[in-house]
């Protein structure tokens, strides 16, 4: 049985004059200890997906339909009390900005002990011992002293390590990391990612990594979902998606990276912007920005189909695939 199984998840936001759909029929599975990347630009619905999995959507957002089965139980229908038993305990979330996640007026120790005592019957001393062990696991120097420090006394990289240690406190089965290193420098990012990978592998923890950085996804994950305007447009093994992307949007994202173009030449940009949720185009949501779009792309919405080993939601994927090698030969 897979650890997490999401089927046809649809999330809506009730606005004053209309209801917008933020996620359309999201379905994916995650096996125990598997690492999954979710990529896309801002507004693609990556973070909403993360929040829905933790049942953290707040008004006006709500899960309209679909199932989120975590270890066989449906999270989507759980009440707050049931959810508290799972959140932080069996699944934990790491956010982008560690300064917002940590409480600025409590010491690191107080926050870690509080989390532990909320879920387990432990004395203060026992809880602190566990906290120290976890801090050591994330290579925090002199963890005993850190317990008495406040978040502002630590650097950004150190804070993000502490967040990771806190996420691991109760030995969760699944970690959802939402842009965990976007606010950090490349050198620190490389450190944190290496650490996260190591911890997930050694503890057999599942990871859902939400990011816009394809380089990070490529190094961290086994499978990838590419999202656009609230839908999964391509899903499959990370290596295949990076090396041979099928959906025009995935191709666009990869080709737009500076390292894909000779220095000094024009980058291959994707024209236009991600549509806002209130004005998602009919037909394929990517069609206005897609250079392969034909008439029926603008009228009929493509359903995800299997293409080789990946799932792609594109009408023209066959034509596309036949076209690409020719272009490369000419070039």
């Amino acid at each position: 049985m897979s650890l997490l199984s999401v089927s046809d998840l649809t999330v809506k936001f009730a606005m004053r004059d209309q209801t917008v759909t933020a996620l359309h029929d999201i379905s994916f599975d995650l096996a125990k200890g598997e690492r999954l990347g979710i990529v896309g630009e801002s507004g693609a619905g990556k973070s909403i997906t993360g929040f829905s999995l933790m049942n953290l959507l707040s008004k006006p957002g709500y899960i309209d339909s679909g199932k989120i089965l975590f270890e066989g139980q449906d999270i989507a229908g759980m009440n707050d009390a049931q959810m508290r038993g799972i959140r932080g305990n069996k699944m934990a979330m790491i956010f982008q900005d560690p300064m917002v996640t940590l409480n600025p007026v409590l010491t690191i120790g107080q926050q870690m002990v509080e989390t532990l005592q909320a879920h387990r019957k432990l004395s203060r001393d026992e809880a602190e011992q566990i906290a120290i062990v976890k801090l050591r696991e994330v290579y925090i120097p002199s963890p005993e002293e850190r317990l008495n420090q406040y978040p502002h006394e630590l650097s950004g990289g150190m804070r993000q390590r502490i967040i990771i240690a806190m996420a691991l406190l109760l030995n969760p089965q699944l970690i959802i990391a939402d842009e965990p290193t976007t606010a950090l420098d490349v050198t620190i990012q490389a450190d944190i990612m290496e650490l996260l990978l190591e911890l997930c592998q050694s503890n057999k923890v599942g990871l859902i990594l939400i990011t816009h950085d394809l380089g990070v996804v490529s190094q961290m994950t086994e499978r990838t979902l590419v999202m656009y305007a609230g839908r999964i447009v391509e899903a499959g093994r990370t290596r295949e998606i990076i090396n041979d992307p099928q959906h025009p949007y995935t191709q666009g994202l990869i080709n737009a990276l500076p390292q894909q173009t000779l220095p000094g030449h024009r980058l291959k940009q994707i024209p236009g912007n991600m549509p806002s949720l209130t004005s998602i185009p009919v037909g394929c949501p990517f069609s206005p920005r897609c250079s392969y779009a034909v008439d029926h792309c603008r009228t009929t919405r493509p359903e995800p189909i299997s293409y080789g080993t990946v799932r792609v939601a594109c009408h023209e994927v066959n034509r596309l695939h036949n076209d690409t090698p020719d272009q490369e030969k000419q070039a």
């Binding site: 150190m158 050198t187 490389a190 450190d191 290496e194 990076i242 990276l257």
Partner: peptide
């Protein structure tokens, strides 16, 4: 070290030079 820390698209694991401390 700075160049080695950039996540690469095609390599699985680059030879990232880990810097001591911050």
């Amino acid at each position: 070290a700075l160049l080695s820390a950039v996540p690469q698209l095609k390599d699985d694991r680059p030879n990232h030079i880990r810097l001591k401390g911050e």
